[in-house]
Every structure is written in structure tokens, then in C-alpha cells.
Simulated assay, not measured.
Amino acid sequence: MDRLPARARRDRHGRGLRGRLVPPTVPLSRSRAEQFDDLVLDAVEDLERRWERELAGVEFAVEDVPWVDHTSPDDVVLDADVLEDGSVPLARVLPAHREGGQEHPARIVVYRRPLEIRAADRDDLADLVRDVVVDQVAVLLGRDPEEIDPAG
């Protein structure tokens, strides 16, 4: 009997992967990462309405966790452009710069997992994401967070 190569077999019982548990139109079908992306987009869209000209060309990104050099926890010194809680980065502003003859736009990076861990529930996470995005936009524009989002 011919055996399939290990990578060609789907699973131990040969049944393959199961189907979706919920229809794709139900919010539950979206992953936590996709839901988090939506929270960041909502916060950015609200700010872009008021600060459209100033935020033109600014990129917003979401990463699961910050990259950390694990040489020694006592030696970790975060740059001034990093919003942190204790020594855990929550977000970072990367100003526009030119490197190797190529122009790189300003970028605000929000770290998903540290924010999710600090939130009690989805509403708390939405508030926290908005606060972090507002704070980082304020840093980028050199303004007070209250000026960026007076309602917040």
C-alpha cells in the first residue's frame, strides 16, 4: 500500500479539517486580532475627521507584541517614542525619515496583546485603544492629548 508523504496527510484520522463553527456574517466569526484591528481603525477614523491634514500620510499599524531585545530585563531602556506601562510597550511612534534614498512616512504602531491583557472587557479595550491612539497622535503632532481628543 502506498503511503502519502507526511505533509500531504490532513490529519491522523483522514477526515480533514472541520468546517466553520459560525457563519462568516456573524461578528463571532472574526478573530480577536481582526476585532482589535477594527477598534484601532475606529479610533483612527474619528481622529482623521478632525486632523485630516495633519495625519495625511501617517501610517497606522498593529503588531501582536513588541519586539524586545532579551539581553537582560534590567537593561531594557525604551526610547522616548514608546508608550509603556511599567516596562511593557503599548505603542510606538516612528517619525518620518529618509533611509537609503527612500522616504518612509511617519508610523504609529499599536501592540495588541499588551493592551488586551490590560483590558477587563471589550468596552474597556475599546477605550484603552482609543486612549493609546490619541496619545500617540499627540506625540507625533507635538500637542496635548486633550487638544487631539477633547471629548476623551
Rank of each mutant, 00 (worst) to 15 (best):
L83S: 11
V109Y: 09
R107P: 00
A106M: 05
R98L: 12
L94P: 00
D85K: 08
R107T: 12
P95R: 07
E103T: 14
H97D: 10
A80C: 00
S87I: 10
P89E: 07
E99I: 00
L94W: 02
V82L: 02
V82Y: 06
D81E: 14
Q102R: 15
Y111F: 15
E84L: 07
H104Q: 13
A106N: 05
R98N: 08
V88S: 13
H97P: 01
L90G: 04
E84V: 02
V82A: 02
D79V: 05
D85Q: 07
Q102M: 11
E103P: 00
V109E: 04
V88M: 13
A91C: 04
E84F: 00
G100R: 13
D81F: 03
V88T: 15
L94A: 06
D79N: 12
A96N: 04
Y111K: 03
Q102Y: 11
E103R: 15
Q102K: 14
A91L: 02
A96V: 11
R92E: 15
A80K: 10
E99L: 09
G86A: 08
V109F: 01
P89A: 14
G100Y: 09
E84I: 00
L90V: 01
V82T: 11
G101Q: 06
V82I: 12
S87L: 13
I108C: 02
A91K: 02
L83V: 09
Y111Q: 08
D81R: 13
V109N: 03
L83H: 09
E99S: 07
R107Y: 04
I108D: 03
Y111W: 11
V88F: 08
V110W: 08
Y111G: 01
A80P: 00
V109W: 06
I108P: 01
V88D: 14
Y111M: 07
Y111C: 04
A91H: 06
L83F: 10
D79A: 14
D85V: 04
A96R: 13
V82G: 03
D81W: 09
V110S: 02
V88I: 13
E99N: 01
E84H: 14
A80G: 09
A106S: 09
H104C: 03
A91S: 11
H104V: 03
A106C: 07
E84K: 12
E103W: 12
H104P: 00
V110T: 11
Y111T: 00
D85R: 08
P105G: 11
V93L: 10
E103V: 13
D85F: 10
H97W: 10
A106P: 03
G86L: 11
A96D: 08
A106H: 03
G101L: 03
P89Y: 02
P89K: 01
L78N: 10
V93Q: 05
R92G: 01
P89N: 02
A91G: 15
V93Y: 06
E99W: 13
V110H: 12
V77G: 06
A91R: 03
A80W: 08
R107N: 01
P95S: 02
V93T: 12
P105N: 10
A96I: 08
L78F: 09
Y111V: 01
V77N: 12
R107A: 09
I108K: 03
Q102S: 09
V109T: 15
L94N: 10
H104F: 15
A106T: 06
D79S: 13
D81N: 15
V88C: 10
R98D: 15
L94H: 12
S87T: 14
Y111R: 08
